[in-house]
């Protein structure tokens, strides 16, 4: 009887790792899909207004953003302020900002440059109007009011 010893009776067989690659791939895809590259950290709070007639913003590379909203840190006040790139700015800085955005693009693409206004909904129109006037003067006519999509009411 001793001849027929059970082989490896006590040793636990290793957990199959054949599906591990699948899981890793899955995670990889998940993170690839959900991460959005944010090139500037927001200093102002943006709660966009909602609208039904929204269009998708095509060609992300041809969009420059202007953020307007109340500062996140209260020591900068509660009034809406303008953020360009990574710092607070004033209306007078906008021509320079648009100029540098144009410089960064191809000659042929400069006409197609869109300025996306990401504005908090509590902001008063005064500052937005000033920004629009500046954009008109420098010839950046294509603008996009960033809004969230609302389900159309019937």
């Amino acid at each position: 009887m001793a001849k027929f010893k059970k082989k490896g009776g006590k040793a636990t067989p290793g957990i199959s790792t054949s599906s591990l690659p699948d899981i890793i791939f899955m995670l990889l895809f998940f993170f690839m899909v959900t991460t959005t590259m944010r090139d500037s950290t927001l200093l102002v709070q943006i709660k966009p207004p909602q609208a039904t007639e929204v269009q998708k913003l095509e060609k992300k590379s041809l969009v420059s953003f202007i953020f307007i909203g109340p500062p996140l840190k209260k020591q900068f006040g509660t009034e809406s302020r303008i953020q360009l790139n990574d710092s607070f700015a004033t209306v007078e800085d906008i021509p320079e900002f648009i100029e540098s955005e144009r410089e960064a693009r191809d000659e042929a693409d400069r006409k197609l440059l869109t300025t996306s206004l990401k504005v908090d909904k509590e902001t008063k129109m005064g500052v937005v109007t000033d920004v629009k006037q500046q954009l008109r003067e420098i010839g950046a006519f294509k603008i996009n009011y960033s809004t969230a999509k609302k389900i159309a009411r019937k």
Partner: peptide, 24 residues
């Protein structure tokens, strides 16, 4: 799991109302 995450994650697509400003 994959399908669950695919369904629940919302990618923030930039949407908005596009307008053209008049020249000064």
């Amino acid at each position: 799991l994959l399908i669950f995450f695919l369904v629940t994650t919302t990618m923030d697509v930039d949407t908005g109302i596009t307008r053209k400003l008049p020249p000064p």
